[in-house]
Design a protein around this nucleic acid. Structure first.
Lengths: 197, 197
DNA sequence: GATCACATACCGACTGGTTAGTCTGCCGAG
DNA sequence: CTCGGCAGACTAACCAGTCGGTATGTGATC
């Protein structure tokens, strides 16, 4: 018998988080009962409320994880040694790939954020804003260097691109005609083309 | 005493629809109780269930209305007498303006569609698909005429643009620095710039 | 022009079912 | 023996939809 695992190989908190992520993405936060989550994780309510303070905490944890991941990756691409147009393209394509790889998190993110209480919502917004600004700085850098058009404010360009990223969970299907990388390349390409001076 | 109006100037079904739209956008579909809707509309449950079969029917009505409106407008712009790049630009800018003008409907649309039952969801998807295809046809027309780049599949270009349109309800604020028309012009501009050969 | 039949519009108490979160207690490891 | 980790019955609240009832209007009949 394994150490702290019964119905599955992973520790209970991770199992709960994984089950919650899948169910929230599938049916939405409000339509998913705590009972369903604990059953999917192979435990009971006692276990869930032992590790998490509330159902909402579970949702916030999902956000926090995906935000940390994406911020790390963006920072890595933005700080690389390369021309700004290259760094922007890589970052723009990477966020598409990682979003597709975590489509569940993405759909939860954009559909259920308003279910968080005001304080937690604020917290998430602050993190998101940091991400947005890092991306914007990249565009502004290119604009100042003269390699990107200044016709559109950088803020709007960021929202334009992230709109399409956010939209991915609505239309992208793994069994569709385009691979993750192809979609990412096309979307990054559209961004760069729109920014040509 | 007016004819069929007591607490307000509009007929009861419209009042219910307006109240539901506002509340669904504010708190989400599941978080809005039927009781709250009828109170906001100044009637009782009896009235609501007299005019609508269910809470879900109310949500579907919201969709049907906004879909009809946007399809009509797109058709008008697409069928106009003008060069294709002009027709596309006008259509792309118009959908931004009408979306901003109906931000409540927009946020309900992309946050609550999955709350519809499978059949109703399918119905909405069919209507949406028709809209998508009309828009795509416009892009393909321009590509065949050689005025738009063929580097990106037209389907993807449509999703790129509509991603940004959906995203509007997340970030656009009427008291922000940009007017509706300015945002619309910028977003249409980004689309056209990305499509330059 | 009075009466009856029937329909439309709406009211509001009630029901059956669901849900998040609590609490008491068991159990195995150190 | 005790303490973290967890089970599962329980509670208090809530909610969509129902249903019997009332009020007002309308058209037919005599």
């Amino acid at each position: 018998m394994a150490k702290a695992t019964d119905g599955n190989g992973a520790p209970v908190p991770q199992r709960l988080l994984a089950a919650a992520t899948r169910l929230f993405a599938e049916r939405g936060y409000d339509r998913t009962s705590v009972q369903e989550i604990v059953e999917a994780a192979g435990v009971t309510k006692g276990a869930l409320y032992h590790y998490f303070g509330s159902k909402e905490d579970l949702l916030q944890e999902v956000y926090a994880r995906v935000l940390r991941l994406q911020q790390e990756r963006l920072d890595a691409f933005a700080d690389a040694e390369a021309p700004v147009e290259r760094r922007l393209r890589d970052a723009a394509a990477d966020v598409v790939v990682t979003t597709i790889e975590n489509l569940d998190d993405a759909s939860i993110f954009f559909r259920s954020m308003h279910h968080l209480s005001p304080e937690k919502n604020k917290q998430v917004r602050i993190e998101r804003r940091r991400y947005h600004e890092r991306f914007r700085a990249l565009i502004e850098e290119g604009q100042q260097a003269g390699v990107f058009s200044t016709a559109t404010p950088a803020d709007l360009v960021v929202d334009y691109h992230f709109g399409s990223v956010h939209h991915l969970s609505t239309w992208y299907r793994p069994d569709g005609p385009l691979s993750q990388q192809e979609v990412a390349d096309h979307l990054a390409d559209l961004l760069l083309r729109a920014l040509r001076p």
